[in-house]
């Protein structure tokens, strides 16, 4: 491949948008071409510089309050309309949303509830899992951990900086996983990647422990799942499961049991 061909492939390569064959061709060229390798480095550094100077922002509280009030008003408007109850407050709300057909209002109220549930929109399963499902999930988590090591696809974003890893998930999953570096405690953050478990995209974080790797999988708990924990092993891999802050956490590694417990303790403490 020539450098000219590379110019159209370098950006999608940097953005992770090429298929496996394309990635292979670009990688082969990069290995022998310092100029293109330098161009790639500059694309990546530009991205880092943009994120540094133009960080993702939080919506101001007043915007959040305004929007939540609008959703509540839709909700209140629909019940007021269906019950036709007189009253100053509901009359005002009714007037404000009078342009909504009543049936539409009811479906909007339902939609607003889905918003509140958040995770339920995507997961769509709220019943508690059976024991068999738990075992299946554990197998899937261990398989994903092993696969990430075998395929060399450990990381989509390799960085020890949580301020790089955490925003990387922004837009790739519909929740914001907690990302903390435990370098000082002997579990350095290696980076993160996207994985697919339980029928949805989940955040996977990789931590180091000497020459071992600990994978942590995180995704939101479906609304009615009970809070519980489990600890098990499969083919020499130790597995921990817990829930905290509305998230499912699975940690998998071949480190010693005690090390994994120490690591889980750190993560729970955040």
């Amino acid at each position: 491949m020539t450098c000219d061909e590379m110019t159209t492939l370098l950006d999608p390569f940097a953005d992770g948008e090429l298929d496996a064959a394309g990635v292979r061709r670009v990688s082969d060229h990069l290995a022998g071409c310092a100029r293109c390798a330098n161009d790639l480095r500059r694309i990546r550094e530009l991205g880092t510089a943009i994120r540094r100077e133009m960080p993702a922002l939080a919506a101001p509280d007043e915007v959040r309050a305004h929007v939540e009030a609008a959703i509540r008003a839709v909700d209140a408007g629909s019940s007021a309309a269906s019950e036709a109850r007189p009253g100053r407050g509901s009359a005002r709300r009714r007037a404000r949303w009078a342009w909504f057909p009543a049936g539409r209002q009811a479906s909007l109220a339902a939609a607003a509830l889905v918003v509140a549930a958040g995770a339920a929109w995507q997961v769509g399963r709220v019943e508690a899992r059976s024991g068999a499902e738990d075992a299946a999930m554990r197998d899937a988590v261990v398989a994903s951990h092993i696969r990430s090591l075998q395929a060399g696809h450990l990381l989509d974003v390799a960085s020890t900086d949580r301020h790089t890893v955490k925003p990387w998930f922004n837009g790739r999953v519909d929740f914001s996983p907690t990302v903390v570096d435990f370098q000082a405690q002997g579990f350095p953050l290696l980076g993160g990647r996207l994985d697919y478990l339980d029928g949805r995209a989940v955040a996977a974080l990789a931590y180091g422990r000497a020459r071992h790797v600990i994978s942590v999988f995180v995704w939101p708990v479906a609304a009615s799942d009970p809070s519980w924990e489990s600890s098990s092993s499969l083919n020499g891999y130790h597995v921990r499961f817990w829930r905290a802050g509305g998230m499912n956490y699975w940690a998998v590694s071949d480190v010693a049991d005690a090390d994994l417990d120490a690591f889980v303790g750190l993560l729970k403490g955040t």
């Binding site: 939080a58 915007v63 959040r64």
Partner: peptide
């Protein structure tokens, strides 16, 4: 589908 994306929207 709105509230979770407010920050991204802003």
């Amino acid at each position: 589908m709105i509230v979770p994306h407010l920050d991204a929207a802003y």
